[in-house]
Amino acid sequence: MTSTLGGLVSDRPHQALSRAVVKTALYRVLMVVVSVAVAYLVVGDVSAALSIGLATNVVKTVTYYGYERLWDRIAWGIPTAE
C-alpha cells in the first residue's frame, strides 16, 4: 500500500459508499431531533421548530457526508499494515 503527502493521504480501500450513506442518514436523524427540540425551546412553536430543524439539517447532511468522505481519504492516525 502506498500513500501520498507524507503519509497523510491513503490510497487504501475505503469504507463502502452504502456504509457512509447509512451512517450519515442515521446521524442526521438524531441531529434533526436535537435541532427541532432546541428550536422548540427557543421559539415555542412546533411548526417553526420543525421548519428550522429540517432546513438546517438538509444543509448539514450534505456537508457532513462530504466531510466524512474527505476524512476517509486521510491516513493520519490510522495504523498501516506493513
Rank of each mutant, 00 (worst) to 15 (best):
V62D: 11
G44T: 01
V34N: 06
V36L: 08
V36M: 04
V62F: 13
S18G: 13
V46C: 05
V58T: 06
S35D: 08
K60I: 11
L26S: 03
V21H: 06
T61P: 00
V42S: 10
L50A: 13
V34A: 10
I74M: 11
V29T: 13
V36N: 13
D45Q: 08
R28V: 04
Y40V: 00
I74A: 11
I78N: 00
R19N: 08
V62S: 07
V58D: 04
A49V: 01
A39H: 12
L54K: 00
V34S: 07
L54V: 04
I78W: 04
A20H: 15
G77E: 07
Y27M: 13
W71D: 08
T61H: 01
P79I: 06
E68Y: 02
E82P: 03
L41N: 09
R19E: 15
A25H: 09
V62Q: 09
A81D: 10
E82C: 00
W71N: 14
V43P: 05
L17G: 10
V46E: 04
R28C: 11
D45R: 15
V59N: 03
V32Y: 10
W71C: 06
S47P: 06
A55N: 13
G44L: 06
V59I: 14
A48L: 15
R28Q: 13
K60G: 02
V58Q: 00
G53R: 07
G44Y: 02
D72L: 05
L26F: 12
T61M: 15
A16M: 13
M31L: 08
L30H: 13
V21Y: 11
Y64M: 09
D72R: 09
G53V: 04
V58L: 15
Y67N: 14
D72P: 08
D45T: 01
I52P: 00
A75P: 07
G77D: 06
S35C: 10
A20W: 14
M31R: 12
P79Y: 01
R69I: 06
S47H: 09
Y40D: 07
A37C: 07
V58W: 07
L50K: 06
T80E: 15
V43T: 12
L41W: 14
V38L: 15
T80F: 00
Y64A: 04
I52R: 02
M31W: 15
D45F: 00
R28I: 09
V29R: 12
Y65R: 09
M31G: 01
T61V: 07
L54N: 03
R28H: 07
R28K: 12
V42H: 10
I52M: 15
V42Q: 12
L70Q: 05
E82A: 02
S18E: 03
A49R: 14
V22L: 14
V36F: 04
W76N: 04
G53Q: 03
I74V: 13
A39Y: 14
